[in-house]
Design a protein around this nucleic acid. Structure first.
Lengths: 125, 125
DNA sequence: CCAATTTGATTACAGTTGTAGTCAGTGCTT
DNA sequence: AAGCACTGACTACAACTGTAATCAAATTGG
């Protein structure tokens, strides 16, 4: 299980769309992204091409267009990015990172309760 | 309070050294980093130059050499990187991120106890 | 059937990053 | 005094990014 290829910020946006629902055509993806990201459709196409080249997404021809889908599950990337974030910012120490977040983010009562529940569940191994 | 300039992975390594102790000369920083990072001293110098240009560190001349120090506190960057990480990977939702970490990282009993304590403290507003 | 449109492929181009090398000034060594 | 050793300044250069434009082939509207 080697590490998956790096994907940039802009590429992440495309992946989010594909992880949420796939397969999709370039056009569908562009329609989803161009407005919120203020991107030109061409930009989306470029990103799709790069992701294909990196092997992060695959496509299947449907008539004259392509249907894209992720080649790797979102979890792989969440894991990868999380590790890299914790390493970079917290020197690899997860607990200080968690403490930092709990202390600095504004969390609702419900959030706190949920976290407490997760901790309890975790405690029972 | 605009957002601080982007700093790259390699630049973070330099900043970590400076945040840990400053001011320091280029040479001291290089000695700290070259071995563990397998970097050439020149590489460290380049990074220092870039950080100065970005305004992330400042220097003071001491004889013929410079003494470098951070221009921004580590907290600013922890905050910035955290936000960008949560946005990118968890779509801005902090709680799912925290749940994910608690569930997937291997945490010791002590870690769990610490987190619980933080939650308790937080609950009392 | 031919022109206009659409799609993927290829090319563009500047800014950032990783990773140094070269150059010119200064002070240390003999 | 002459040269070498360090320092910061400037230069190098390829890969990756953001952000498209252009081109050629296929499809569609008239």
């Amino acid at each position: 299980m080697g590490k998956p290829p790096q994907i940039s910020d802009a590429e992440w946006e495309v992946m989010k769309v594909l992880w949420e629902q796939s397969p999709r055509t370039a056009n569908e993806i562009a329609e989803t992204l161009c407005e919120p990201m203020a991107w030109h459709p061409k930009t989306v196409k470029t990103l799709l091409g790069r992701l294909v080249k990196k092997g992060v997404i695959r496509y299947r021809e449907e008539g004259n267009r392509y249907l894209y889908r992720p080649a790797l599950p979102r979890e792989r990337y969440v894991e990868e990015e999380s590790r890299s974030f914790v390493d970079r910012v917290f020197g690899g120490a997860a607990t200080p990172m968690l403490v930092h977040f709990v202390e600095t983010m504004k969390l609702t009562e419900d959030d706190l309760a949920e976290l407490r529940a997760v901790l309890d569940r975790k405690k029972k191994e």
